[in-house]
Simulated scan of single mutants.
Amino acid sequence: MKSIHEKNGLDAASGGITLIDAHHHLWNLDTHHYPWLKNYDPDSFLGDYTSLMQNYLPEDYAQDSSGHRILATVHCEADHDYSDEVAETRWVHQQAERYGFPNAVVPHIWFHQDNSEEILLGHLKFPLVRGIRSKPVTAPSPDQVARVQGVSGSMQDDKWLSGFSLLEKYHLSWDLRVPFWHLEEAAEVAKAFPDTRIVLNHMGFPWDRSENGLAIWRKGMQALADCPNVLVKVSELGLKDRPWTVECNRSVVLETTELFGMDRCMFASNFPVAGLKISYDQLVNNLAEILDGYSSSQREAFFWRNAKAFYRIEL
Protein backbone atom coordinates (compact mmCIF):
# COMPACT_ATOMS: atom_id res chain seq x y z
CA MET A 1 0.00 0.00 0.00
CA LYS A 2 1.51 3.30 -1.09
CA SER A 3 1.41 6.31 1.22
CA ILE A 4 0.09 9.66 0.05
CA HIS A 5 3.69 10.85 -0.08
CA GLU A 6 4.76 8.03 -2.40
CA LYS A 7 1.75 8.67 -4.63
CA ASN A 8 2.89 12.26 -5.06
CA GLY A 9 6.54 11.48 -5.67
CA LEU A 10 7.61 12.79 -2.27
CA ASP A 11 10.12 11.18 0.04
CA ALA A 12 8.35 8.51 2.07
CA ALA A 13 8.92 8.52 5.79
CA SER A 14 11.71 6.09 6.66
CA GLY A 15 10.39 5.77 10.19
CA GLY A 16 7.28 7.05 11.84
CA ILE A 17 3.90 5.37 12.18
CA THR A 18 1.60 3.95 9.51
CA LEU A 19 -1.79 5.62 9.83
CA ILE A 20 -5.02 6.83 8.31
CA ASP A 21 -5.87 10.35 9.36
CA ALA A 22 -9.58 10.25 10.18
CA HIS A 23 -10.07 14.01 10.34
CA HIS A 24 -8.29 16.91 8.69
CA HIS A 25 -9.17 20.00 6.68
CA LEU A 26 -8.08 21.70 3.47
CA TRP A 27 -9.08 25.14 2.23
CA ASN A 28 -8.34 27.61 -0.51
CA LEU A 29 -9.24 31.11 0.60
CA ASP A 30 -8.52 32.51 -2.86
CA THR A 31 -11.41 30.61 -4.42
CA HIS A 32 -13.79 29.75 -1.56
CA HIS A 33 -15.37 31.54 1.37
CA TYR A 34 -14.87 30.39 4.96
CA PRO A 35 -16.43 33.10 7.15
CA TRP A 36 -14.45 32.21 10.29
CA LEU A 37 -11.19 32.47 8.34
CA LYS A 38 -12.08 35.86 6.91
CA ASN A 39 -13.52 37.48 10.04
CA TYR A 40 -11.44 36.74 13.12
CA ASP A 41 -13.40 35.76 16.25
CA PRO A 42 -11.47 36.78 19.39
CA ASP A 43 -13.79 34.67 21.55
CA SER A 44 -13.06 31.41 19.73
CA PHE A 45 -12.18 28.38 21.85
CA LEU A 46 -9.06 28.11 19.70
CA GLY A 47 -7.52 31.25 21.11
CA ASP A 48 -5.44 33.22 18.62
CA TYR A 49 -5.95 31.39 15.32
CA THR A 50 -4.76 34.12 12.95
CA SER A 51 -2.07 31.77 11.62
CA LEU A 52 -4.84 29.62 10.14
CA MET A 53 -6.17 32.49 8.04
CA GLN A 54 -4.29 31.45 4.93
CA ASN A 55 -4.55 28.68 2.35
CA TYR A 56 -4.05 25.12 3.56
CA LEU A 57 -3.65 22.93 0.49
CA PRO A 58 -2.73 19.27 -0.09
CA GLU A 59 0.93 20.24 -0.43
CA ASP A 60 0.82 21.83 3.01
CA TYR A 61 -0.78 18.77 4.56
CA ALA A 62 1.76 16.48 2.88
CA GLN A 63 4.60 18.57 4.27
CA ASP A 64 3.15 18.64 7.79
CA SER A 65 2.57 14.88 7.85
CA SER A 66 5.81 13.84 6.14
CA GLY A 67 7.26 12.23 9.27
CA HIS A 68 4.74 9.38 9.07
CA ARG A 69 3.37 6.92 6.53
CA ILE A 70 -0.10 8.21 5.73
CA LEU A 71 -2.10 5.55 3.88
CA ALA A 72 -5.23 7.67 3.43
CA THR A 73 -7.08 10.64 4.88
CA VAL A 74 -10.61 11.76 5.68
CA HIS A 75 -11.58 15.34 4.90
CA CYS A 76 -14.11 16.87 7.27
CA GLU A 77 -16.06 19.99 6.39
CA ALA A 78 -14.43 23.18 7.60
CA ASP A 79 -17.30 25.64 8.08
CA HIS A 80 -17.34 26.58 4.42
CA ASP A 81 -19.93 29.14 3.31
CA TYR A 82 -23.13 27.24 4.11
CA SER A 83 -25.04 28.97 1.35
CA ASP A 84 -23.05 26.82 -1.10
CA GLU A 85 -22.15 23.67 0.83
CA VAL A 86 -21.63 21.43 -2.19
CA ALA A 87 -18.90 23.74 -3.51
CA GLU A 88 -16.52 22.53 -0.81
CA THR A 89 -17.25 18.88 -1.64
CA ARG A 90 -16.62 19.53 -5.33
CA TRP A 91 -13.30 21.26 -4.61
CA VAL A 92 -12.10 18.54 -2.23
CA HIS A 93 -12.83 15.90 -4.88
CA GLN A 94 -10.75 17.88 -7.35
CA GLN A 95 -7.86 17.71 -4.90
CA ALA A 96 -8.39 13.97 -4.46
CA GLU A 97 -8.24 13.43 -8.21
CA ARG A 98 -4.96 15.32 -8.43
CA TYR A 99 -3.16 14.17 -5.27
CA GLY A 100 -4.70 10.79 -4.42
CA PHE A 101 -6.15 12.09 -1.15
CA PRO A 102 -8.43 12.75 0.69
CA ASN A 103 -9.90 9.25 0.36
CA ALA A 104 -13.18 9.88 2.17
CA VAL A 105 -15.17 13.11 2.53
CA VAL A 106 -17.53 14.29 5.28
CA PRO A 107 -19.48 17.35 4.08
CA HIS A 108 -22.12 19.45 5.82
CA ILE A 109 -25.89 19.82 5.73
CA TRP A 110 -28.33 21.36 8.22
CA PHE A 111 -30.69 18.63 9.39
CA HIS A 112 -33.49 21.01 10.37
CA GLN A 113 -33.78 22.97 7.14
CA ASP A 114 -36.35 22.29 4.43
CA ASN A 115 -33.72 21.65 1.74
CA SER A 116 -31.70 19.11 3.75
CA GLU A 117 -32.32 16.21 1.40
CA GLU A 118 -31.74 18.35 -1.69
CA ILE A 119 -28.33 19.46 -0.41
CA LEU A 120 -27.50 15.91 0.67
CA LEU A 121 -28.25 14.58 -2.80
CA GLY A 122 -25.95 17.26 -4.21
CA HIS A 123 -23.12 15.92 -2.04
CA LEU A 124 -23.89 12.34 -3.02
CA LYS A 125 -23.08 13.07 -6.65
CA PHE A 126 -19.47 12.81 -5.49
CA PRO A 127 -18.15 9.29 -4.85
CA LEU A 128 -16.00 9.84 -1.75
CA VAL A 129 -18.82 11.09 0.50
CA ARG A 130 -19.14 8.72 3.45
CA GLY A 131 -20.93 10.71 6.14
CA ILE A 132 -22.23 14.08 7.23
CA ARG A 133 -21.17 16.52 9.91
CA SER A 134 -24.02 18.71 11.09
CA LYS A 135 -23.59 20.67 14.29
CA PRO A 136 -26.76 20.92 16.41
CA VAL A 137 -27.58 24.03 18.39
CA THR A 138 -25.61 23.96 21.65
CA ALA A 139 -25.35 26.07 24.78
CA PRO A 140 -22.27 28.22 25.48
CA SER A 141 -21.78 26.64 28.92
CA PRO A 142 -23.02 23.70 31.02
CA ASP A 143 -25.35 25.84 33.11
CA GLN A 144 -27.29 26.98 30.03
CA VAL A 145 -28.08 23.60 28.47
CA ALA A 146 -31.78 23.70 29.42
CA ARG A 147 -32.25 26.96 27.53
CA VAL A 148 -31.54 25.39 24.13
CA GLN A 149 -33.18 22.00 24.57
CA GLY A 150 -36.02 21.65 22.09
CA VAL A 151 -35.30 24.84 20.16
CA SER A 152 -35.06 24.76 16.37
CA GLY A 153 -31.89 22.95 15.35
CA SER A 154 -31.36 21.26 18.70
CA MET A 155 -31.10 17.50 19.20
CA GLN A 156 -34.66 17.42 20.57
CA ASP A 157 -36.16 19.30 17.61
CA ASP A 158 -38.52 17.02 15.64
CA LYS A 159 -37.50 18.64 12.38
CA TRP A 160 -33.81 18.12 13.21
CA LEU A 161 -34.49 14.47 14.05
CA SER A 162 -36.37 14.02 10.79
CA GLY A 163 -33.39 15.40 8.88
CA PHE A 164 -31.07 13.18 10.89
CA SER A 165 -33.02 10.13 9.70
CA LEU A 166 -31.72 10.82 6.18
CA LEU A 167 -28.39 9.34 7.25
CA GLU A 168 -29.88 5.88 7.66
CA LYS A 169 -31.84 6.27 4.43
CA TYR A 170 -28.65 6.96 2.46
CA HIS A 171 -26.31 4.70 4.48
CA LEU A 172 -24.22 7.56 5.82
CA SER A 173 -22.52 8.12 9.16
CA TRP A 174 -22.70 11.15 11.43
CA ASP A 175 -19.67 13.07 12.64
CA LEU A 176 -20.88 14.30 16.01
CA ARG A 177 -19.37 17.56 17.25
CA VAL A 178 -20.72 19.03 20.48
CA PRO A 179 -19.06 20.29 23.70
CA PHE A 180 -18.89 17.90 26.62
CA TRP A 181 -22.02 19.25 28.32
CA HIS A 182 -24.18 17.94 25.45
CA LEU A 183 -22.78 14.39 25.24
CA GLU A 184 -25.62 12.77 27.17
CA GLU A 185 -28.16 14.32 24.79
CA ALA A 186 -26.15 12.99 21.85
CA ALA A 187 -26.29 9.53 23.40
CA GLU A 188 -30.09 9.77 23.36
CA VAL A 189 -29.93 10.40 19.61
CA ALA A 190 -27.56 7.46 19.17
CA LYS A 191 -29.98 5.19 21.05
CA ALA A 192 -32.91 6.42 18.95
CA PHE A 193 -31.04 5.60 15.72
CA PRO A 194 -29.12 2.39 16.52
CA ASP A 195 -28.50 1.57 12.85
CA THR A 196 -26.76 4.89 12.14
CA ARG A 197 -23.00 4.81 12.66
CA ILE A 198 -21.76 7.78 14.66
CA VAL A 199 -18.28 9.02 15.47
CA LEU A 200 -17.69 11.59 18.19
CA ASN A 201 -15.29 14.32 17.10
CA HIS A 202 -12.48 15.53 19.35
CA MET A 203 -13.33 13.33 22.34
CA GLY A 204 -16.24 15.58 23.20
CA PHE A 205 -13.98 18.58 23.87
CA PRO A 206 -12.84 17.98 27.48
CA TRP A 207 -11.95 21.64 27.84
CA ASP A 208 -12.59 21.90 31.57
CA ARG A 209 -10.02 19.74 33.35
CA SER A 210 -11.31 20.62 36.82
CA GLU A 211 -12.83 17.83 38.93
CA ASN A 212 -16.34 19.06 38.19
CA GLY A 213 -15.70 19.57 34.47
CA LEU A 214 -14.21 16.10 34.05
CA ALA A 215 -17.11 14.55 35.98
CA ILE A 216 -19.59 16.00 33.46
CA TRP A 217 -17.37 14.88 30.56
CA ARG A 218 -16.99 11.33 31.95
CA LYS A 219 -20.74 10.94 32.43
CA GLY A 220 -21.39 11.95 28.83
CA MET A 221 -18.60 9.77 27.48
CA GLN A 222 -19.96 6.78 29.40
CA ALA A 223 -23.42 7.39 27.95
CA LEU A 224 -21.99 7.39 24.41
CA ALA A 225 -19.74 4.40 25.08
CA ASP A 226 -22.86 2.47 26.10
CA CYS A 227 -24.14 2.91 22.51
CA PRO A 228 -22.49 0.26 20.30
CA ASN A 229 -23.01 2.37 17.17
CA VAL A 230 -20.75 5.17 18.48
CA LEU A 231 -17.01 5.45 17.92
CA VAL A 232 -14.69 8.29 18.92
CA LYS A 233 -11.89 10.29 17.33
CA VAL A 234 -8.96 10.93 19.64
CA SER A 235 -8.18 14.42 18.41
CA GLU A 236 -8.06 18.16 19.12
CA LEU A 237 -6.82 18.03 22.69
CA GLY A 238 -5.35 21.49 22.53
CA LEU A 239 -6.39 23.77 25.38
CA LYS A 240 -6.66 27.52 25.09
CA ASP A 241 -4.57 28.24 28.18
CA ARG A 242 -1.83 25.57 28.10
CA PRO A 243 0.46 23.65 25.74
CA TRP A 244 -0.21 20.15 24.36
CA THR A 245 1.76 17.76 26.56
CA VAL A 246 1.67 14.05 27.33
CA GLU A 247 1.28 14.85 31.02
CA CYS A 248 -1.75 17.08 30.39
CA ASN A 249 -3.58 14.72 28.05
CA ARG A 250 -2.57 11.21 29.07
CA SER A 251 -5.45 10.64 31.50
CA VAL A 252 -8.29 11.82 29.22
CA VAL A 253 -6.93 9.79 26.30
CA LEU A 254 -6.60 6.61 28.36
CA GLU A 255 -10.01 7.09 29.95
CA THR A 256 -11.46 7.35 26.45
CA THR A 257 -9.73 4.23 25.13
CA GLU A 258 -10.77 2.28 28.23
CA LEU A 259 -14.40 3.40 27.94
CA PHE A 260 -14.80 2.69 24.24
CA GLY A 261 -12.16 0.02 23.69
CA MET A 262 -9.43 0.37 21.09
CA ASP A 263 -11.70 -1.15 18.44
CA ARG A 264 -13.93 1.95 18.67
CA CYS A 265 -11.23 4.66 18.81
CA MET A 266 -9.38 6.21 15.90
CA PHE A 267 -6.55 8.62 15.32
CA ALA A 268 -7.43 12.00 13.83
CA SER A 269 -5.08 14.96 13.48
CA ASN A 270 -7.53 17.84 12.99
CA PHE A 271 -4.78 19.59 11.06
CA PRO A 272 -4.14 22.38 10.44
CA VAL A 273 -6.20 23.44 13.48
CA ALA A 274 -4.27 21.25 15.92
CA GLY A 275 -1.09 22.85 14.57
CA LEU A 276 -1.87 25.88 16.71
CA LYS A 277 -0.59 23.85 19.68
CA ILE A 278 1.56 21.01 18.34
CA SER A 279 3.33 19.76 15.22
CA TYR A 280 1.92 16.79 13.31
CA ASP A 281 4.95 14.67 14.09
CA GLN A 282 4.84 15.41 17.81
CA LEU A 283 1.08 14.84 17.94
CA VAL A 284 1.45 11.32 16.53
CA ASN A 285 4.47 10.56 18.70
CA ASN A 286 2.76 11.83 21.86
CA LEU A 287 -0.29 9.64 21.24
CA ALA A 288 1.94 6.67 20.50
CA GLU A 289 3.68 7.25 23.82
CA ILE A 290 0.38 7.47 25.70
CA LEU A 291 -0.86 4.24 24.07
CA ASP A 292 2.38 2.32 24.52
CA GLY A 293 0.73 -0.10 26.96
CA TYR A 294 -1.59 -1.47 24.27
CA SER A 295 -0.65 -4.35 21.98
CA SER A 296 0.69 -3.77 18.47
CA SER A 297 -2.59 -5.01 16.94
CA GLN A 298 -4.61 -2.63 19.13
CA ARG A 299 -2.42 0.31 18.17
CA GLU A 300 -2.69 -0.67 14.51
CA ALA A 301 -6.48 -0.66 14.85
CA PHE A 302 -6.34 2.77 16.47
CA PHE A 303 -3.98 4.35 13.97
CA TRP A 304 -5.57 3.06 10.76
CA ARG A 305 -7.73 -0.05 10.66
CA ASN A 306 -10.75 1.42 12.49
CA ALA A 307 -10.86 4.49 10.25
CA LYS A 308 -10.54 2.32 7.14
CA ALA A 309 -13.56 0.26 8.19
CA PHE A 310 -15.71 3.12 9.47
CA TYR A 311 -15.24 5.34 6.41
CA ARG A 312 -15.16 2.43 3.95
CA ILE A 313 -11.81 3.43 2.53
CA GLU A 314 -10.32 1.36 -0.26
CA LEU A 315 -6.55 1.11 -0.16
Rank of each mutant, 00 (worst) to 15 (best):
I4V: 13
N8A: 14
N8T: 14
G15T: 14
T18C: 09
L19N: 04
T31C: 15
K38D: 13
D43V: 05
L46M: 11
G47W: 14
G47D: 12
D48F: 11
P58A: 08
E59I: 00
A62Q: 12
S65R: 07
A72H: 03
H75T: 07
D84T: 06
A87I: 03
T89V: 13
R90N: 12
R98Q: 15
Y99E: 11
V106W: 01
P107S: 05
F111Y: 13
F126N: 09
V129C: 08
T138I: 14
Q144P: 14
R147I: 13
R147Q: 14
Q149G: 03
D157G: 05
L166Q: 02
K169H: 12
L172H: 01
V178T: 15
E185Q: 11
A187Q: 04
E188F: 04
F193C: 06
P194E: 13
D195K: 11
I198F: 05
W217C: 05
A225P: 02
D226Y: 08
L231D: 15
V232L: 05
K233N: 03
V234D: 02
S235H: 01
L237Y: 09
L254C: 09
T256S: 09
F260M: 01
G261R: 02
R264L: 09
M266T: 10
N270K: 00
F271T: 01
F271L: 09
I278R: 06
V284S: 03
L287G: 02
S296C: 04
S297P: 01
Q298D: 15
F302Q: 02
E314L: 03
